[in-house]
Design a binder for these strands. Structure first.
Length: 612
RNA sequence: GGAGCCUUAGCUCAAUUGGUUAGAGCGCCGCCCUGUCACGGCGGAGGUUGCGGGUUCGAGCCCCGUAGGCUCCGCCA
C-alpha cells in the first residue's frame, strides 16, 4: 500500500492499534461539523472510520476540514486513539477508535450525488445511470466482494479436484436450438455471422474428446431473450465437464463445491448429501421442477375420490384423462374476496379454467361447489387433506400438467401471503433428476429436447426411444435447486455417434442439417469420444441467494435494465455508417419521418460521412 | 407481443369531492455551534406535477394518447 495515500483500510483499525500514526484514504461518507471539533466518517470498500479534527491540536487542518463535503476524496494522517469513554459506537466495527487527524489532503472535490448513498431506497434506473456511485454503497461493495469469494472458492475447489480452467471462444457458431443468439457480423467473411455462446456446450464436449478429462470455466454466456429479475442477456456460469464419470460423480462433486462456497461466502455448513426428487415427484408434489421445499403445502391427488363425482367439472376432467388435485392452505380461511380473485386470475393466466375453493369456517364448509359433493367424498377429502377448522382448500381439475403447474404457482403465492418461510437463513438444496428427454412441441408438431440434443437417455429407457414412446423416455439430466431457484443443471451426454444420430432423427433434424449444423461434433465423436457429462451453475443466482438479494442485478457490477440497456453508457447505441459499410450491413429500421424532422440538425461530420 | 403497478423539488413521499400561492422530511446553500455518529439551532434556494391533447369557470387529481421504470405471462434447449 502506498504510504503516500494510506497505510490501512477504513475497516481495519481496532482498539489494539491505538497510539499508531496511520493514514487513511477514501470518500467522505458524512460530516458532523460542530463549529469547533469536526467529525468525518471516512469510507472505502472495507468500511468506515471516524476521523476527528480538533482545532486546538491542529488548527490549520481543522480549518481545511470545514470545507469537506459528501463524497470528497481525501487522504488523512493522524493518530489512532481510543474514543472518549461513553462515545464508542457499537454499530461500527471500528467504533472503539477514531483517527485524530494532523494532516489532510483533499485529493478530489465531488459534486453532490444525485441520490443518497447512505439510504437503501432510490429508483433503480437512477442507480444504474450512476452505477459507479451505487457501487460505493456498503451493500453493493459487500455483494461484489461476496461474488469474488464465491468464484475464488470454486476455482480452488475445482483445481483441488483436478479440473483445468480452459477458455472457449466468445465468437462462435450459431445453432438453431435453444435461445435466440446474439449475432456478430464477420468483416472478413461478409454475409457470415458469429454467434455469442449461449453456453460453451459443444466446446466443452469437444474438450472431452480432446482428452482434457476434467474441464471448468467461469464462462460468460449470452442469450437474446426478454429479461427478468433473475435473467440478464449476459450472465456467468460455472461450466463443468468431466470424462469417465457417471451421474453421481457429478452430483457429489457439485454438492461438495456448493458446500465449500456457502462455507466460504456465508459461513454456514450445508448438510450433505442433498435430498433428491425425481422430476415426476417434484411435479406431482410441488407442481414445479424447481420446488421450494422450505414449506409444505404440498399438492394432494384426489382423482380417486372424485372418479364418480356428481360435480361435472371434476368428473369431466377425470373422464378425459386429467386429474383433480388440491392444496390445503392451513389457517387461510380468512382469505378475502380480493385475494380469491387474485388467485383465480393467476390460475387462469397459467391455463386453468378457474380455481375452486372451500373455506372451513365455524365448522362449516363454505364454497360454491360443496353442494355437489357426496358424504363419502367429503369424508375422503377430510382424511386426505387433513382438513381442520380455519383451512382453505384450493382445487385444480384439468390435464395433469396444467393442474400441477397452476397449483404449483398458487402454492408459491399462498406461501408468500401467509409468510410460510419463517427462517430467512434457511437453505433448502435439492436435486431434481430423471427429467423427460423430450417434450412435444404442439405449435411446430415435433419433439424438442428438454435439456439439449446431446443429453443421454437413461439406459433403461433407450428401448422406449427405439419403440417411439418418446414422451416416456427419461434423461440422465439433473438440476440443482436452492429455495425454489434453479441454480444449475446438467446431464450425462451421448458419446456414441449412432445414438446421437438417432436422437437427431427423433428431433426431426435431417441428415443434411445434422452435417451442416453438428457435423464437427458428430465427426469428433467418431474418433473416440469418452463417456462424459457435466453441469453448469448460475453464478449470478448463487451469489444473489447468498447475499439475500432478490435481483441478480444487485450482484453484477454493471447490469442492464429491463430492456437490455446499460443506462450508464447508453448501450446499445447507433454506430457510424462507415462501420456498417465495413461489415456489409444495412439497417432495415427506418427513422420515423416526424422524429427525423423534429430532430435537431446534425453536425456536418456525421450528416455527411466521407465518401469511401 | 400481452397484463399489472408506478411517474409531484436532487432523493423519499404528501396534497380532502376537481377549488386560493403544490407541502413535508432528507439533501443542498449561508450563518451559528468543541464529542457527534440520522449531531443540533436559525435562515434560504429549489417545481412546465414525465410529455401531448381533451373535458371544465377551474385539472397534480377526471378522460384519451404517448414516453419511461419495475414485476409478471409469452420467450429463456
Amino acid at each position: 500500500m502506498s504510504a503516500l495515500y494510506r497505510t490501512h483500510h477504513c475497516g481495519q483499525l481496532r482498539a489494539a492499534d491505538a497510539g499508531q500514526v496511520v493514514s487513511l484514504a477514501g470518500w467522505v461518507a458524512s460530516r458532523r461539523d460542530h463549529g469547533g471539533v469536526i467529525f468525518i466518517d471516512l469510507r472505502d470498500r472495507a468500511g468506515l472510520t471516524q476521523v476527528v479534527f480538533r482545532p486546538e491540536e491542529a488548527a490549520a487542518v481543522a480549518q481545511q476540514a470545514h470545507a469537506l463535503r459528501s463524497e470528497d476524496v481525501i487522504s488523512v494522517r493522524g493518530r489512532v486513539a481510543k474514543r472518549l469513554v461513553g462515545t464508542e459506537n457499537t454499530r461500527l466495527a471500528t467504533g472503539e477508535i477514531e483517527l485524530v487527524a494532523d494532516a489532510l489532503t483533499i485529493l478530489n472535490k465531488a459534486d453532490t450525488p444525485p441520490f443518497p448513498l447512505d439510504a437503501e431506497a432510490a429508483n433503480e434506473d437512477l442507480r444504474l445511470a450512476h452505477r459507479y456511485l451505487d457501487l460505493r454503497r456498503p451493500r453493493m461493495a459487500r455483494n461484489l466482494q461476496t461474488r469474488h469469494r464465491v468464484v475464488k472458492t470454486v476455482r480452488d475447489y475445482l483445481d483441488d479436484h483436478g479440473f483445468l480452467e480452459i477458455e472457449t471462444p466468445i465468437l462462435s457458431k450459431s445453432t438453431p436450438e435453444g435461445a435466440r443468439d446474439f449475432l456478430v457480423p464477420s468483416r472478413l467473411q461478409p454475409g457470415s455471422w458469429y454467434a455469442l455462446p449461449q453456453a460453451p456446450q459443444q466446446y466443452k464436449q469437444l474438450l472431452m474428446v480432446g482428452g482434457l478429462d476434467k474441464y471448468f470455466q467461469i464462462a460468460k454466456c449470452f442469450r437474446d431473450e426478454d429479461l427478468r429479475a433473475d435473467r440478464q442477456p449476459e450472465f456467468t456460469q460455472i461450466d463443468i465437464e468431466a470424462s469417465f464419470v457417471e451421474r453421481d460423480d457429478i452430483l457429489q462433486l457439485v454438492e461438495g463445491m456448493l458446500a465449500a462456497v456457502f462455507k466460504a461466502a456465508r459461513g454456514v455448513e450445508v448438510p450433505l448429501p442433498f435430498p433428491r426428487l425425481t422430476y415426476d415427484e417434484a411435479m406431482n408434489r410441488y407442481g414445479s421442477d424447481k420446488p421450494d421445499t422450505r414449506f409444505g403445502l404440498e399438492l394432494v391427488d384426489l382423482s380417486d375420490v372424485f372418479a364418480l363425482s356428481q360435480f361435472k367439472v371434476f368428473a369431466g376432467a377425470l373422464s378425459s384423462g386429467g386429474v383433480v388435485k388440491a392444496i390445503n392452505a392451513k389457517g387461510f380461511a380468512g382469505v378475502t374476496t380480493g385475494q380469491i380473485e387474485e388467485l383465480t386470475k393467476m390460475a387462469q393466466s397459467y391455463g386453468a379454467k378457474g380455481l375452486a375453493f372451500i373455506k372451513v369456517e365455524n365448522g362449516e364448509w363454505k364454497s360454491p361447489i360443496v353442494k355437489f359433493f357426496s358424504a363419502q367424498e367429503k369424508a375422503a377429502l377430510t382424511e386426505k387433506l387433513g382438513i381442520a377448522e380455519g383451512d382453505l382448500l384450493l382445487f385444480g381439475a384439468d390435464k395433469r400438467e396444467t393442474v400441477c403447474e397452476v397449483l404449483g404457482r398458487i402454492r408459491l403465492r399462498v406461501a408468500e401471503i401467509l409468510k410460510l418461510v419463517t427462517d430467512p437463513a434457511r437453505l433448502d438444496f435439492l436435486w431434481v433428476t430423471d427429467f423427460p428427454l423430450l417434450a412435444f412441441n404442439a405449435e411446430e408438431n415435433k419433439w424438442d429436447a428438454v435439456h439439449h440434443p446431446f443429453t443421454r437417455p437413461l439406459a433403461e429407457d433407450v428401448e422406449l426411444l427405439k419403440q417411439g414412446e418418446l414422451g416416456k423416455v427419461r434423461a440422465a439430466a439433473y438440476d440443482v435447486v436452492l429455495n425454489g431457484f434453479e441454480i444449475g443443471g446438467g446431464s450425462i451426454r451421448i458419446h456414441e455417434p449412432e445414438l446421437q444420430a438417432q436422437m437427431f432423427s427423433v428431433l426431426g433434424i435431417s441428415a443434411e442439417q445434422q452435417a451442416k449444423q453438428f457435423g464437427h461434433i458428430l465427426k469428433a465423436f467418431s474418433f473416440g469420444a469418452p463417456p462424459h457429462g457435466g453441469i453448469a451453475l448460475g453464478v449470478d443466482r448463487i451469489v444473489m441467494l447468498i447475499c439475500g438479494e432478490t435481483s441478480i442485478r444487485d450482484v453484477m457490477a454493471f447490469p442492464k435494465n429491463n430492456r437490455g440497456q446499460d443506462l450508464m453508457s447508453q448501450s446499445p447505441s447507433e454506430v457510424e455508417p462507415k462501420q456498417l459499410r465495413e461489415l456489409a450491413l444495412q439497417s432495415t429500421v427506418r427513422q420515423a419521418p416526424a422524429a427525423a424532422a423534429a430532430a435537431p440538425p446534425r453536425p456536418a461530420a456525421t450528416a455527411a460521412p466521407a465518401a469511401p
